[in-house]
Structure formats: C-alpha cells, structure tokens
C-alpha cells in the first residue's frame, strides 16, 4: 500500500484515495464543433507511459478533493502531487530509491 501526499491533507494511506485517470486532459469548450476523430481523441486516447505519468487522484475518503500526481509507473512510487490549478512540475525519474513519504 502506498502513502499518498494529498496537497490539502498531507500523508495518507492509499485506501483513502481513488484513481481518476490521466491528468491534464481538458474537456473541449464546444464538443459539437469537433469531428468524430477529434472527439474520439479526447474521449478515448490515453498515453501508456513507462516512467513518470501525470494522473488524477481524488482524496475520496478524506477531503474529497481532486488533485494531480506524478507517479513512476515502473515503481508505483509517487514523485509529486499538486493542485489541479497548478502546472505540472518538471521532475525527472529519481536515480536512487527515495524513502516512503
């Protein structure tokens, strides 16, 4: 079980959180103006990153807030968490294992 740092509540165990899919995908302002291809891109296409992946999490059994996280998909380790109105931090894969938060 992971420890996830909620940007609002701090360190909490994984069971308090729900996963919310890839981050930084914005719903189009006017979906009706998109052709089928563009709509399908938004709706279905997701990256399958090996390494640092930006994704949404929700502290569902805590403050209830959505936030974004950078997670290393090769180790499951969270590298950073940040509010959804913040830009994605530029963080590289750590060269050495880091202790649990």
């Amino acid at each position: 079980m992971l420890i996830i740092v909620c940007p609002f509540c701090g360190k909490r165990p994984e069971i308090e959180f729900t996963y919310g899919g890839q981050a930084h995908i914005t719903r189009p302002e006017r979906p009706s103006e998109l052709d089928d291809q563009a709509w399908a891109e938004f709706l279905y296409m997701r990256s399958n990153t090996k390494g640092i992946h930006a994704e949404r999490w929700r502290h569902a059994r805590g403050c209830g807030r959505f936030f974004n996280a950078l997670r290393d998909t090769t180790t499951d380790h969270f590298v950073a968490t940040y509010r959804i109105d913040e830009p994605q931090p530029q963080i590289e894969q750590p060269a050495e294992p880091v202790p649990p938060p």
Binding site: R27, R56, F66, I84
Partner: peptide, 10 residues
C-alpha cells in the same frame, strides 16, 4: 463522484 469531478476539475 462524477458530479464532484466535473465541478472541481472542468
């Protein structure tokens, strides 16, 4: 959860 998702993030 879906309502909260749209309310908070979109």
């Amino acid at each position: 959860a879906m309502m909260e998702d749209y309310r908070q993030t979109e």
